[in-house]
């Protein structure tokens, strides 16, 4: 009885947000590569509490990925060089998605990777129409095998080419996940928007490396890898701010988010929703804990509805 009175005195906190026409019950989305296909994490909690899930980067053919070690630690972060290990789009559709749908009933974000424009296009064509897949997220941090190995995401025209090619084969909203390893992220964001992107995810990992003092050799077999985790939060936040002020499409903030306060800060910088990556690897309950902590954080900062933040 006392409990009810107590909660009745509080204004209801509305966690709902929108990514274009896609409504999420809260803004918290596990980021690609840090949550598999979701169902494995239901050992830890009911993943239906999540706003959405971005599944592991998927390519046309199965990929084993890079040699071990694939991971190095750094202060408040980590470096990974998984190399897009995934079973390929067909197995994702026939084996992973059905299991994912049993554990999660909300909108799914399909994270698609490619080493050629044709590969992106073919993956998107096949994922289009799959139940619950409501957004395609293009990981453009992969090297373009036809472009001298330069990552698609580092060049405005290649990003635009990928978006245009993909938009021809799908009616799903297409989000481009931008690489921070560029001189001018705003130029790339604008190129994606002009090419027809429906939204952006900002950011993917920063390129980094570590050397083992004992062996004097790089820790990671592939030498370099993607730097992520709490350490990158200020960089990600800055880029979300810059990009969301330059485009008129929704932005998903990603990079270093680990707390409910981080979520609010990302949304104040212009994000409509937030992806959480590395935090899940350190605390398997991270996303659930953030969602649970959001109402109190909103109350503390006088926020009644999350959609009043962001854009």
């Amino acid at each position: 009885m006392e409990m009810t009175e107590h909660t009745e005195n509080r204004p209801a906190r509305d966690l709902r947000v929108k990514l274009g026409n896609v409504e999420l019950k809260n803004p918290v989305i596990p980021a690609s590569g840090c949550f598999g296909y979701g169902y494995g994490m239901s050992e830890y909690y009911d993943i239906d509490v999540l706003g959405s899930i971005s599944f592991k980067g998927t390519t046309l053919e199965p990929r084993f990925g890079n040699p071990l070690p694939r991971v190095a630690e750094c202060t408040a972060g980590m470096i990974n060089s998984v190399g897009l290990q995934n079973p390929g789009i067909e197995a994702v559709i026939s084996e992973e998605l059905p299991k994912m749908r049993e554990a999660f009933h909300g909108p799914i974000i399909a994270n698609i990777s490619g080493f050629s424009i044709e590969e992106y296009r073919e993956c998107c064509r096949r994922i289009d129409g799959e139940k619950q897949v409501e957004i395609i997220e293009l990981n453009v941090s992969c090297p373009n095998v036809h472009g001298g190995g330069m990552a698609f995401g580092t060049c405005a025209t290649s990003v635009a080419d990928v978006v245009k090619a993909v938009k021809e084969v799908t009616t799903l909203p297409v989000y481009v996940k931008l690489s921070p390893n560029v001189t001018d992220i705003v130029a790339i964001a604008r190129a994606a928007e002009e090419a027809g992107a429906d939204g952006l995810c900002v950011i993917n990992t920063l390129l980094g490396m570590r050397i083992d003092l004992k062996t004097r050799k790089p820790v990671i077999a592939n030498v370099m890898g993607g730097f992520s985790g709490q350490a990158v939060f200020p960089v990600a936040l800055r880029m979300v701010w810059q990009v969301s002020h330059a485009v008129n499409i929704p932005v998903i903030g990603c990079g270093g988010v680990a707390t409910a306060d981080n979520v609010l800060e990302m949304m104040m910088a212009g994000a409509s929703a937030v992806e959480v990556g590395t935090a899940n690897l350190i605390n398997p309950w991270a996303c659930r804990d953030i969602i649970d902590a959001l109402p109190a954080a909103m109350e503390k900062y006088g926020i009644e509805s999350l959609s009043e933040l962001g854009r």
Partner: peptide, 15 residues
């Protein structure tokens, strides 16, 4: 193996 998570989420330890 060097591990990212230890519980199957990141694929940092694949063999």
């Amino acid at each position: 193996a060097r591990m990212g998570c230890g519980f199957g989420a990141c694929m940092c330890c694949s063999l």
